Amino acid sequence: MFIHKIDEEVSLRLFNEDDAEEFYQLTISSKSYLKEWLGWLDYIESVEDSAENIKSRLKGLVENGGYPKSFAIIYRGEIAGTIGFNELNKTNKIGAIGYWLGEKFQGKGIMSKAFKTVIEYGFKELELNRIEVSVAVENKKSRALPERFGFTEEGKVRQAEWLYDHYVDHIIYGLLAEEWEMKTSK
């Protein structure tokens, strides 16, 4: 099983089918918190729904030539959230990162560590040229990540996402491999 230890408390690993119950419980326990910015939560109604999500993630591993697209974020042995590439365009070498963290795991620096690790993975292992992040304009916590890691705000997509009863605009951030290389070689 793929496990990447970031530090003593945080690691990334592949999901496995045995994670369905824990992942479901994390999703449900954080549902009201996450619902402000994630539009798919009403579709998670059972452990089986989480199991199907995990199966599709594992299928993505096969489709991507054995390279994982998404990871469970592990904090002190518990699944704290998820991060990975929602989309990979192999022709143009572009990856779009998506992420979320359970409510009780907020404010511990977990997502910053995971985010940096996935950027490095995208540029080094997947050989991407560009990584994108699309975030709701008002989602300040999620916007802080690409801003902290040197992404360029490239524009706004109006009414990019339907969230239950309203549309939200998104900011698109981009980071090129050469920019990351310059930033990390200092």
Rank of each mutant, 00 (worst) to 15 (best):
I119W: 05
A144V: 05
G66K: 13
V157N: 02
G155N: 08
P146S: 10
G98C: 10
T82L: 01
L101I: 15
S56W: 12
G155E: 11
K104S: 04
D49T: 01
A72T: 03
A114H: 00
K90T: 06
G155A: 07
N139E: 12
E87I: 07
G84A: 03
K55F: 02
K113A: 12
E147N: 03
N129I: 02
P146A: 08
V118K: 02
K108A: 06
I97A: 11
E125Y: 15
E103C: 02
G84P: 01
I119E: 09
Y99G: 02
Y121A: 11
Q159Y: 11
N129D: 11
G95W: 07
E125R: 15
N92Y: 11
G77V: 00
N92M: 05
V137P: 01
K156M: 12
K140W: 08
K113I: 08
K55D: 02
I94P: 02
Q106V: 03
S142F: 00
K113N: 12
G150M: 13
E138K: 13
I54Y: 00
R57D: 10
K108T: 03
R148Q: 10
F115E: 01
K69H: 11
E63P: 05
Y67T: 04
F149A: 05
G155P: 08
G98K: 07
T117K: 14
E132T: 03
F71W: 15
A160C: 14
G150I: 09
S112K: 10
L58P: 00
V135R: 01
L58D: 02
F115Q: 00
R130W: 06
I131C: 11
I83R: 01
R130I: 09
N129V: 02
G81A: 06
K156R: 14
R57S: 10
L58M: 09
F151E: 03
W162Q: 05
Y99A: 06
S56K: 09
V157A: 06
V133I: 14
K108F: 10
F123V: 06
F105K: 03
K104P: 01
M111E: 09
S56A: 08
E147I: 05
V137S: 09
E125M: 15
G65T: 05
W100N: 15
G81F: 01
E52V: 02
S142Q: 00
N86T: 03
I131H: 11
A96N: 10
F71Y: 12
I110Y: 10
A136V: 05
